[in-house]
């Protein structure tokens, strides 16, 4: 029983972080319709910056630097690669390839700059809290709070503000907006910026519990984000966050029953089964006609 609870604690922790991955991917995917693989490089780049600067300028300024880098990185991909390609009438497939190309370039530039190996954040955040034999680290305590706050903020903006209604309109029918004379570009960029900026926040949640970051660990971040989106139901921000949480939670708790070497096979098989049985996702209402 103790093990089950301990795994559940880990599951809530991983789920909280995956919820942010899901939200990040969903915001960018819904507003740009791009499989932003380069998000992986943006993630690891911003995390590496946090680690490199934390010991010299302090953790909070370092996180700020990471956020700035991630925002610029995300905007750069959109403004420098996806946007221009879209204007040239490139197919989705071409944009996906370009995104993979950016990922490869990004990972290797990071490797030259920071070295290929994993770095960890050496900041003392205080010991864990032990309750009834269950060990809860500070990071595990912090992550759900941060996740709820970030997702809550995003949902508030999306559903309670004028700007949010424009974002929804953009996700729903961009052409209609353009016909109404609303410039969609700045709205899209704002979503890309926010979606990118939450990546280093998620990264720090992980780093605080002693996990490492290298230039090459970005791809899973994108895939978890993508799976969250499709699991939660496409174009639903709340769905993506919940989808991400479920992936993290189930993947951890499942280890109570299966050996960890089968964890990846389990997660992907389960995902496959769900989207085959219910392609609209757990919360989705309608199947959007594919853009590809």
């Amino acid at each position: 029983m103790n093990l089950f609870l301990q795994l559940a604690v880990n599951g809530i922790y991983a789920g909280s972080i995956f919820a942010l991955f899901g939200l990040s991917f969903a915001l960018i995917f819904a507003t740009t319709k791009v499989w932003h693989f380069a998000q992986g490089a943006v993630y690891s780049g911003s995390a590496l910056i946090v680690v490199a600067l934390a010991t010299t300028i302090g953790l909070l300024p370092a996180i700020l630097a990471g956020v700035v880098f991630a925002t610029l990185g995300g905007l750069g991909c959109q403004a420098g690669i996806y946007g221009p390609l879209r204007r040239r009438g490139a197919s989705m497939l071409v944009i996906v390839m370009a995104s993979l190309g950016v990922t490869i370039v990004g990972e290797n530039l990071l490797s030259i700059l920071f070295g290929p190996s994993q770095k960890t954040l050496l900041v003392d955040v205080g010991g864990p809290i032990i309750a009834g034999g269950i060990v809860i680290s500070r990071a595990q305590l912090l992550a759900p709070i941060i996740a709820v706050a970030v997702v809550g903020l995003a949902l508030f903006v999306l559903y309670r503000t004028d700007f949010g209604r424009k974002v929804q309109a953009l996700i729903g029918d961009e052409e209609l907006m353009q016909l109404q004379g609303i410039a969609t570009g700045p709205i899209r960029m704002a979503c890309v910026a926010f979606g990118s900026a939450i990546l280093p926040i998620a990264a720090v949640m992980l780093l605080l519990s002693g996990t490492g970051v290298s230039p090459y660990i970005g791809l899973p971040v994108v895939l978890i984000g993508a799976m969250s989106l499709f699991l939660g139901g496409i174009n639903s921000m709340l769905g993506a966050a919940i989808g991400g949480f479920l992936i993290g939670f189930v993947e951890n708790v499942a280890l109570y029953f299966i050996p960890s070497s089968w964890q990846a096979a389990f997660t992907y098989s389960l995902f496959l089964a769900i989207i085959l049985v219910r392609p609209t996702g757990l919360l989705g209402r309608r199947l959007i006609q594919s853009s590809m």
Binding site: T211, L219, P259
Partner: peptide
Amino acid sequence: AIESFRASDTNYGPQVAKIAA
């Protein structure tokens, strides 16, 4: 207990939890 993780994993929390148990 024998637990493993993939090269792209960075969070070994659940594996360590199983080992600790």
